[in-house]
C-alpha cells in the first residue's frame, strides 16, 4: 500500500514537471496559442449552428429536443477537448517517435514507457475550449429547467472519465499500427471522422450493423450520449451507464494487449 502510494506520488511529480515544461514551451508562441483557441471555438460554434439550423425545421430528432441536442454537443465538446488537452498531440506523435528512433530514448527512462508516450505534452489551450463546452452544457441545462442532483454530477464525472478512456485507448491502438507501417499520419485524420459521429443522438440511428459497430466495437455512440442522457435525466435506470464503463475497461485492456504485441515488433530506426 505504501509502495503504491509512493509510485503515485512519483508519477504525479513527473507529470507536474511535464506540464510545467509544456506551459513554458507554449508561452513562446502566445499569438499562435490564442489563435488555436479561436479555431477550436469556431468549430464548436459551427456544430451548434448546424443543430440550431436543423431545429429551425423540426421540433424533435429521434425524441431529442433542441436543448437536449445542444447539451449533447456541449458534453461531446467537453470530453473531446479534455482528450485533446491530455493525449491527442502525444498519440499522433507516436509514429514520428518510431520513424526517427526517438522511442529508444524513452525506453531507457526509468518510467513506464506507455505513460511517457501518452502524456509528454500537455495542451493548456484546450482547457479554454473544454470550459466553453461546459458553459454550453450549463446553459442548455438552464433552458431545460434541469438541475442535476449531486449523484448525477458525480456520475457525470465517472462517465466522462470512461469516455476519455475509450477515446484514449482506441486512438492509442490505432497509433500503434505505426509499429508496422511506420508512416501513419492518416490515423489522426481517420480518428477525426469517428469524433464526428459522437455528437449525434444515438437514437437517430436505426438498429443495425452501423449502430452495433459504433456502440460495441468503436463505442462512439456511447461516449457523449451517455453523459448527456445522464444530465438530461433521460436514462431509464442507472444500469444504462454500465455499457459505457464496461466498454472503457474492454478498450483499455485491448489497447494494452496490442501495445505489448507491438513492442515485440519494434526494431529501432536509429542504430
Amino acid at each position: 500500500m505504501k509502495a503504491a502510494f509512493a509510485t503515485v506520488r512519483r508519477y504525479a511529480g513527473i507529470y507536474a514537471a511535464l506540464i510545467r515544461y509544456s506551459l513554458i514551451h507554449e508561452m513562446q508562441f502566445k499569438a499562435n496559442f490564442l489563435l488555436w483557441i479561436l479555431v477550436e471555438g469556431l468549430w464548436f460554434g459551427l456544430q451548434i449552428a448546424f443543430m440550431t439550423v436543423l431545429y429551425g425545421h423540426t421540433d424533435s430528432i429521434a425524441g431529442w429536443s433542441r436543448w437536449e441536442v445542444v447539451l449533447l454537443v456541449g458534453c461531446n465538446q467537453f470530453i473531446q477537448q479534455l482528450f485533446h488537452m491530455l493525449f491527442v498531440t502525444n498519440l499522433s506523435n507516436l509514429s514520428e517517435l518510431i520513424r526517427k528512433g526517438t522511442l529508444d530514448l524513452l525506453f531507457l527512462q526509468p518510467v513506464n514507457t506507455r505513460f511517457l508516450i501518452s502524456v509528454r505534452k500537455f495542451e493548456i489551450g484546450n482547457i479554454a475550449n473544454a470550459l466553453m463546452g461546459l458553459a454550453v452544457v450549463g446553459y442548455a441545462l438552464a433552458k431545460l429547467h434541469r438541475v442535476p442532483s449531486a449523484a448525477q454530477w458525480m456520475g457525470f464525472v465517472v462517465v466522462c472519465v470512461a469516455g476519455l478512456a475509450i477515446h484514449y485507448s482506441l486512438m492509442f491502438l490505432l497509433a500503434c499500427i505505426a509499429f508496422w507501417t511506420v508512416r501513419a499520419q492518416g490515423i489522426v485524420w481517420g480518428y477525426y471522422n469517428l469524433f464526428n459521429i459522437a455528437r449525434l443522438p444515438a437514437d437517430a440511428f436505426p438498429r443495425g450493423a452501423y449502430r452495433a459497430v459504433f456502440t460495441w466495437v468503436l463505442p462512439m455512440l456511447l461516449v457523449s450520449n451517455v453523459p448527456a442522457k445522464l444530465l438530461a435525466d433521460r436514462l431509464g435506470s442507472p444500469w444504462e451507464l454500465m455499457p459505457l464503463i464496461g466498454m472503457a475497461v474492454v478498450c483499455f485492456g485491448a489497447s494494452e494487449l496490442f501495445w505489448r504485441l507491438s513492442l515485440r515488433h519494434y526494431t529501432s530506426a536509429s542504430s
Binding site: L54, H57, T58, S60, I61, A62, N193, L194, N196, I197, L200, P201, D203, A204, F205, P206, Y210
Partner: peptide, 18 residues
C-alpha cells in the same frame, strides 16, 4: 470519410421520419 456521412444521412432520415 463515409462514416460521418452515413451519420449525417441517418440524422436526416430520422428528421424526415418525424
Amino acid at each position: 470519410g463515409l462514416i460521418p456521412l452515413a451519420g449525417t444521412l441517418f440524422l436526416w432520415k430520422s428528421i424526415y421520419a418525424g
